[in-house]
Computed example of a mutant assay.
Amino acid sequence: MTTTVLRTEGLVVGYGGRPVLDHFSFDLRANEVLCLIGHNGAGKSTLLKCLFGLVPRQGGQVYLDEKPLNHIEPRRLTAAGLSLVPEGRGVFPGLTVAETMKMGLWAAGVPKDLREERLDWVMSVLPALHAFYQQRAGTLSGGQQQIASIGRALLSRPRCLLMDEPSIGLAPKLFQDLLQPIRQLQRDTGMSILLVEQNVKEALKISDRVVVMKSGAIIREALPEELADNAKLMELY
């Protein structure tokens, strides 16, 4: 029997009184990479922001390990096992990567005596961090900023990682180089990943299951190989 880690039931989320997600229900299963695709404005990023407590919901429920999450702020969600890699990377350009990680360890609530060990673990997952660890984030390339953003999200050792458009501004090869260590980590630890992505072709290569959204609703659930044909993808868009 497949275990559900994160799910929504009848979720209603919107802006200015207008719903973007209306009675939206989905599930993220244990030990899987679920890729969420769809046109711009389909509600993908809104879903991730709601799951991480950044956008309030007007109705419905979110469950983590079948326990309802009732308006829990992001810090407590991080402690519960959720972590978010935001769209646009969300790095502070004036801080060095080292300072960003120090702040991330504090924000994740990692005890002081475990912080060095936790940082070493993240660096082992993303060894590229070593090369620009003392640089200010504003001086980094897009790929380096994304590595730093993912590294910060991993500091809490999440069981469930939410990734919002990690390929923005990256060449396909760099995107794959970025995601392969995360895929390996997911396989090694059993972590679940919800990946929102516009670069569908590359995202399908590291996904176990795909959900297609349109206008705030799920219109298709499939295995990656079922959507490998570009013509089939075009039909859904």
Rank of each mutant, 00 (worst) to 15 (best):
residue 104 G to Q: 03
residue 15 Y to M: 07
residue 83 S to Y: 07
residue 231 A to M: 00
residue 70 N to E: 04
residue 115 R to P: 15
residue 53 G to A: 02
residue 99 E to L: 04
residue 190 G to M: 04
residue 182 I to M: 13
residue 136 R to S: 11
residue 196 V to Y: 11
residue 7 R to W: 09
residue 182 I to E: 07
residue 49 K to E: 02
residue 236 L to M: 05
residue 54 L to Q: 09
residue 67 K to Y: 05
residue 21 L to K: 14
residue 20 V to S: 13
residue 228 A to W: 00
residue 54 L to M: 07
residue 129 L to I: 01
residue 178 L to Q: 06
residue 155 L to W: 04
residue 84 L to W: 01
residue 196 V to W: 12
residue 50 C to I: 00
residue 113 D to K: 10
residue 81 G to L: 11
residue 34 L to G: 14
residue 87 E to F: 05
residue 17 G to A: 05
residue 131 A to G: 10
residue 23 H to P: 07
residue 106 W to N: 07
residue 134 Q to D: 13
residue 160 C to Q: 09
residue 97 V to G: 03
residue 140 L to H: 05
residue 107 A to P: 05
residue 161 L to P: 09
residue 112 K to Y: 09
residue 192 S to L: 10
residue 79 A to I: 06
residue 81 G to A: 13
residue 26 F to K: 04
residue 150 I to D: 15
residue 52 F to N: 01
residue 184 Q to A: 15
residue 191 M to V: 08
residue 219 I to D: 08
residue 152 R to A: 04
residue 207 S to L: 00
residue 115 R to D: 07
residue 48 L to R: 01
residue 19 P to W: 03
residue 116 E to C: 14
residue 41 G to H: 04
residue 197 E to I: 12
residue 187 R to L: 15
residue 23 H to K: 14
residue 9 E to W: 01
residue 187 R to H: 12
residue 165 E to H: 12
residue 227 L to P: 04
residue 44 K to T: 05
residue 201 K to M: 15
residue 70 N to C: 10
residue 223 L to I: 00
residue 28 L to D: 02
residue 37 I to F: 07
residue 207 S to Q: 00
residue 66 E to L: 13
residue 172 P to D: 00
residue 72 I to T: 11
residue 133 Y to T: 02
residue 140 L to M: 06
residue 19 P to L: 05
residue 79 A to M: 06
residue 157 R to V: 03
residue 77 L to D: 02
residue 70 N to Q: 10
residue 23 H to F: 06
residue 210 V to C: 12
residue 125 V to Q: 15
residue 102 K to H: 13
residue 31 N to P: 01
residue 176 Q to I: 07
residue 183 R to M: 09
residue 199 N to R: 15
residue 35 C to L: 15
residue 145 Q to P: 11
residue 105 L to S: 04
residue 12 V to A: 13
residue 85 V to K: 06
residue 156 S to H: 12
residue 187 R to M: 12
residue 210 V to G: 09
residue 142 G to T: 02
residue 123 M to K: 11
residue 143 G to R: 01
residue 170 L to P: 04
residue 56 P to E: 05
residue 181 P to S: 10
residue 121 W to G: 14
residue 73 E to T: 08
residue 216 G to D: 03
residue 113 D to S: 09
residue 19 P to E: 01
residue 193 I to H: 12
residue 66 E to D: 15
residue 230 N to K: 14
residue 78 T to H: 07
residue 21 L to M: 10
residue 103 M to C: 03
residue 10 G to Q: 11
